[in-house]
Design a protein around this nucleic acid. Structure first.
Length: 882
RNA sequence: GGGCAGUUAGCUCAGCUGGGAGAGCAUUUCCCUUACAAGGAAGAGGUCGCAGGUUCAAACCCUGCACUGCCCACCA
């Protein structure tokens, strides 16, 4: 098998992603002999194409799924997409607009045809990109929030809630987006700082020359004022309470009232109350039985206002009203003022709070249960710190406005009885799957369906149930086996929009939480720490990374940056690092595979002949424990780092290098023995790495003569006492090798030049191990011969290394720079002195001796002892250098 | 206004239940040593944001402060 010198991911990745999909490798069925491990993917909007957020989230989920497969679970990861309500309708509206088509000209039915056409043509883009990323999703189960089955689920849920009286219709102040032409829920509003003004306006008192000054950011809404409110404890205004003022421009009489919510220190302490345009004002109006006058319509234009203002936009009206108030002397002053303004989360248009008839879901009971479930740890957040925000949000949650004035979405399954002329009767509306045929109230037979559709997040909230057919049979085998799912993985931006609501609905309809764990990961930011966005132009396209560095590199970079719950910055460097790692894996494997040429029947043989064998097996086992723990606790970054470190610095830098001694042996049995361990360790690392880097590991796994599918890992299930003594022994040898290399490097001795070494034994306990493994020192420090002795004097012109247990002389006649050597030793001497100082101070501290654990005291004593020996030897040698 | 994170080498970040400051990149020197120059070997580089406290011992625990970022909230 020829392997190229540089890993060429382009030749490898495509075939594997295709193989996994075609052969349904990740299809799961109910299997009662195996434990399920289930994830439902956060359904991506059909408007979306793969961005870093998706790449991160899906990589993490895939890692978990593939890890569970290694562990022998029956893992299932369900793919799907979301119809995306407003977002999608907006995209298609814009496309139509380019063709000069207006949705109202088309009409609802024709427009929806266009929507479906668009969704069928482009809605699955994201799914094919997930296939490219190698995601181990069960492609037999692709679901869409608006497909037939999911639509049924939505109707079923709605009807149940409606019949329980939890869904109701009412006229309330809602967040209205004038561009989208729909109401929004509270969390669909985002707040931005905006520079504006605070206008101080005189409201004259009736039958008096006196007046009260109010301060407002929205003078144009004054036509809807139905009171002026002050704080009851505000001495300035006590005498004005109950008086009547004349609203300028309109000449309406309104009362001065008191309300505890008024902040005395803000503005003038007097608030104009406009119940139809502001949530606070609306509350005040409710408490004080004030009239509500609508002054802004759904297009954002003024209504119920004096002639000159009718149909002006908010902006036009504001300019006009300010100008007129100024001219008529009512404007007292204008202050610069910066405040938060609500914006539509989809199109950033300023939100108008306005009175509107909408459907609401009463969430108070569901919220209590959702909080309880998390308190009882039925669902656990990772990291746990998200529990608090989740709880706080649910505690303060107001009823959910679930109706949207859109066409794209689940049409509300409520039917109104109508008379022959098509007018709604007073009969009770009916919620049902199909249009009713008969009205129980008046025996009528004509019905019309509600015009509104449901909030997108209503169907998303049902996702963990609806993908398993809850709507068809609440007791079906699949649902019983796969629900509750094991973990939900998502970014923190949709904890409220989605996560909390799934818990509410899961508890409501299934009487059980939708998932046991919630894994919240951070957001990918650019190298300056900024959120990636199209408008900032700092978006890194994962597809470009995939074609430049490889998918495994993308995945490894994301995995190792995904520190639990924290946002991460990602730059070109992280992908380079990951690509280099892939190349390292490739080349180490290549070395082993080249050495397997001509070897027949290599069997698994873990007899350890040498220290290095014991050592690498011990290190492998230690690594597997750490990696397992990390994967299981969603510390994906830790797992990646451990594997990187083990593979590169332990396996490649030390074990493979040491294996070369035996690899060059004429004796085939010797070669077979070391190869057996090399292959064993490699295969195990490939397995452990396969969740993160499935492409390259599968490729090498197969080149090594294994199956196409990476086998379940025995190592992960092994439980044994690990013999770690080999790790300490190796440490001694590594110390010696490194100190000899340092001398070579400092003295600029060419690697081709072999030198001899004299070991003066200071600690007899160390002698045997080093003697037994002197070949390691020869091989890695390029030493020709080693002589062990006691009390030998330093040969002239030799360099000195003092290690724990040995004083080593390297005779370097003609190569050594005595002055340089003196400097080097002086530096070491200083370090030893510092060590002596630190440890002595500790040991002279009575309190330390009294209170520190014995083990710690012994350790410090040993350190002091070692440093003393070292210093003494260094000084001797410094003297002899003259 | 409330809450939550973060602040460690020039950069990006690790550092678990307190006990000798780590990695990658960048940088310096040497090396194309027969897996890998996308590599190997060695080196330099840090009063761990500031100030207190607890402790024999603090990057780690506590308190306060500063700065940065995010989330929530009905000061018009």
């Amino acid at each position: 098998m020829e392997m190229e010198k540089v890993y060429s991911f382009k030749k490898v990745e495509g075939k594997w992603s295709e193989y996994w999909v075609k052969n349904k490798i990740f299809s799961a069925k109910v299997d009662k002999n195996k434990k399920p491990f289930t994830i439902v993917i956060p359904p991506a909007n059909i408007t979306g194409s793969l961005h870093m957020g998706h790449a991160l989230n899906t990589t993490l989920q895939d890692i978990i799924i593939r890890f569970k497969k290694l562990q022998g679970y029956n893992p299932l990861w369900v793919p799907g997409t979301d119809h995306g309500g407003i977002a999608t309708q907006t995209v298609v509206e814009k496309l139509l607009k380019k063709e000069g088509i207006n949705k109202y000209d088309l009409g609802r039915e024709k427009f929806l045809e266009k929507m479906w056409q668009w969704r069928n043509e482009t809605g699955d883009t994201i799914l094919s990109q997930l296939k490219m990323m190698g995601c181990g999703l069960d492609w037999n189960r692709v679901a869409f929030t608006m497909d037939e089955s999911r639509s049924k689920a939505v109707k079923k849920a709605f009807i149940e809630l409606f019949n329980k009286g939890l869904i109701y219709r009412g006229k309330r102040l809602v967040n209205w987006c004038t561009r989208c032409g729909t109401a929004l829920s509270d969390i669909e509003v985002e707040y931005d700082d905006e520079k504006s003004s605070l206008w101080h306006i005189k409201y004259p008192l009736k039958d008096s020359n006196d007046y009260i000054v109010i301060a407002t950011t929205r003078p144009e809404t004054m036509f809807g004022d139905t009171a002026v409110a002050v704080n009851p404890s505000d001495d300035r205004y006590k005498k004005l309470l109950g008086k009547t003022v004349i609203l300028p421009s309109v000449n309406r009489e309104i009362k001065i009232i008191s309300d505890y919510s008024i902040d005395k220190s803000f503005g003038t302490g007097a608030l104009k109350v406009t119940p139809s345009c502001d949530a606070v004002d609306n509350e005040i109006a409710r408490r004080n039985n004030l009239k509500v006058i609508d002054v802004i319509d759904i297009n954002g234009n003024l209504i119920n206002v004096p002639e000159g203002y009718k149909n002006l936009s908010v902006k036009e009206a504001r300019e006009k009203v300010v100008k007129e108030l100024e001219e008529s002397g009512y404007l007292v002053k204008v202050e610069d003022y910066s405040h938060k303004v609500g914006k539509c989360y989809r199109c950033s248009t300023t939100i108008e709070p306005l009175m509107s008839e909408q459907w609401f879901l009463n969430v108070s009971e569901m919220s209590k249960k959702a909080i309880e479930a998390v308190n009882e740890k039925k669902t656990v957040f990772h990291p746990e710190s998200w529990k608090r925000p989740y709880t706080l949000w649910l505690e303060n949650l107001r009823d959910w406005c679930i109706s949207r004035q859109l066409w794209w979405g689940h049409r509300i399954p409520v039917y109104y009885c109508v008379d022959e002329k098509g007018n709604k009767t007073n009969c009770k509306p009916i919620a049902s799957f199909e249009k009713p045929t008969h009205c129980n109230c008046c025996n009528g037979t004509n019905f019309v369906q509600d015009e509104d559709v449901l909030d997108t997040w209503f169907s998303s909230a049902l996702w963990p149930m609806s993908v398993f057919g809850w709507q068809d049979d609440q007791n079906n085998e699949e649902l019983k086996y796969f629900y509750p799912t094991s973990v939900l993985s998502t970014g923190h931006e949709i904890i409220y929009l989605w996560v909390a609501r799934m818990v509410q609905f899961g508890l409501e309809f299934m009487k059980d939480v939708p998932y046991k764990d919630v894994f919240i990961h951070g957001i990918v930011r650019d190298k300056h720490g900024k959120k990636m966005s199209k408008s900032l132009g700092n978006v890194v396209d994962p597809r470009e990374i995939m074609s430049k560095y490889g998918t495994d590199a993308l995945r490894f970079a994301l995995a190792s940056a995904a520190a639990s719950g924290r946002d991460m910055q990602i730059s070109e460097e992280s992908f380079l690092l990951a690509r280099n790692f892939a190349n390292k894996i490739w080349n180490a494997s290549r070395f082993i595979i080249m050495n397997l040429e001509g070897i027949e029947n290599l069997e698994k043989d873990l007899r350890t002949v040498e220290l290095s064998d014991k050592w690498i097996l011990a290190e492998l086992y230690e690594t597997s424990l750490k990696v397992k723990k990390a994967y299981e606790s969603y510390n994906i970054d830790t797992a990646s780092r451990e594997l990187y470190d083990f593979f590169w610095t332990k396996y490649c830098d030390w074990y493979i290098e040491l294996s070369k001694i035996r690899m060059t042996s004429e004796n085939i049995q010797v070669r077979k023995q070391v190869l057996s361990i090399l292959v064993y360790v490699l295969k195990n690392v490939l397995q452990l790495l396969s969740p993160v880097m499935p492409f390259i590991t599968s490729e090498i796994w197969q080149i090594l003569g294994e199956q196409k599918i990476i086998a379940e890992s025995e190592l992960l299930n092994e439980q044994k006492e690990n013999d770690n003594s080999s790790i300490d022994k190796m440490k001694s040898l590594q110390e010696i090798i490194i100190s000899l290399r340092t001398i070579r490097s400092e003295m600029n001795i060419s690697p081709a030049c072999q030198i001899e070494a004299l070991f003066n034994v200071l600690d007899e306990n160390k002698e045997r191990v080093v003697k037994e493994n002197e070949s390691y020192i020869k091989q890695l420090a390029k030493i020709s011969s080693i002589t062990f002795a006691k009390n030998i004097a330093r040969p002239k012109n030799s360099a000195i290394a003092i290690t724990n247990g040995f004083e080593i002389f390297l005779p370097l006649e003609g190569l050594i720079d005595i002055e340089k050597e003196r400097q080097r030793l002086s530096k070491e001497s200083a370090l030893a002195k510092k060590e002596i100082e630190v440890t002595t101070t500790k040991l002279q501290n009575d309190n330390f001796i009294k209170r520190a654990p014995d083990l710690e005291i012994q350790r410090i004593k040993a350190r002091l002892n070692e440093a003393n020996v070292k210093l003494e030897k260094i000084n001797e040698n410094l003297k002899s250098l003259g």
